[in-house]
Design a protein around this nucleic acid. Structure first.
Lengths: 159, 159
DNA sequence: GCGCCTTTACTCGGATAAGTAATGTCCGAGTCTGTCAGG
DNA sequence: CCTGACAGACTCGGACATTACTTATCCGAGTAAAGGCGC
């Protein structure tokens, strides 16, 4: 799995604490963890295309959550970065095997494929059960200073 | 996920039907699905290193299951090919963040990491719940000719 | 006829290239803001 | 003093290198079997 998933999740979580209506630039988000700004920007673009973030150009521009944190699951973010296809891609090698037929969709029939798909669904179910709001709530409860500190970082000069 | 997983799973399943004590060469296993022999051989080597298969050199040599099909889970095969590390690797970017401490293992503390780990465990649990014997039994029940056909292919000349 | 040695062919195993995707970087298009001039 | 146009700077967005990894291939070491030779 690509590294951008970690960046995207933490960045989205940070955006959770931004003032409503306030956009945060990619440079500020990158400064949090000393990430390469341009590359993080690339990941954020993917989140915009997925409808998770909205972007604004120009001064005071940047990114913000496109919808409420309660309506954004961890799976949404992962899918936006990694793409919708599942990790195991069935190449239907059974078609080349003995008795293999070209008119059969072995992604549905093949037991190996089914097993892998079932595991993939379990994985997705876990990730879909956690929203950004859940993460935010737990972090706030455990580290009460985080919301304030994050907001300060969003408004402080970049150095 | 790499393509070799699919090859390895189908090859192991085929080996399930080989006569006890009979080894099957990589060339024969590759011929099943018209796979590149040398590359499949590479994957099989990984299975040998993982203790799933045992190999024999020389004429009448090849691969066979190192233990009973009941004792080989799908997860075993996947781990042998893909490696033991989980898909999401936490780079602990929180260390570079505000209040980040170098003496904390954020792979344990970070909520994002915990969420991804929980999903990974669910995925592994599914795969660990299926053994090669389970797959074999279902295939045999659904296609009763498969065991015989497979054995025939293992003994027939290679053309 | 039987046993041993040699040769032969077959197998795995690791070392070595080619192709592809992830990672990282750069510059241009668009836009908002702040300023300055004019009424 | 207010309004409007303009210049400037900041931001995203996509196009372009670089690196790592997957995929693919090749040749050598080892081994078991088969055949021939001697006893």
């Amino acid at each position: 799995m690509t590294e951008g998933v970690e960046w995207a999740l933490h960045s989205c979580l940070n955006l959770t604490w931004s003032e409503p209506g306030q956009a945060v630039s990619a440079a500020r988000l990158a400064a949090f963890y000393q990430l390469p700004t341009a590359y993080l920007n690339k990941q954020l673009q993917a989140l915009v295309r997925a409808g998770i973030l909205s972007s604004t150009s120009g001064p005071r521009g940047g990114f913000r959550l496109a919808r409420a944190a309660e309506a954004i699951t961890v799976l949404d973010v992962v899918v936006a970065i990694e793409g919708p296809e599942e990790a195991f891609r069935c190449e239907q090698i059974l078609r080349q095997g003995p008795g293999g037929r070209g008119d059969v969709d072995y992604r549905q029939v093949c037991l190996v494929s089914q097993t892998m798909r079932r595991a993939d669904l379990a994985w997705r179910r876990e990730l879909a059960g956690q929203t950004l709001a859940d993460l935010r709530a737990t972090v706030q409860q455990r580290y009460p200073d985080t919301p304030g500190n994050t907001r300060d970082r969003f408004t402080a000069p970049l150095t």
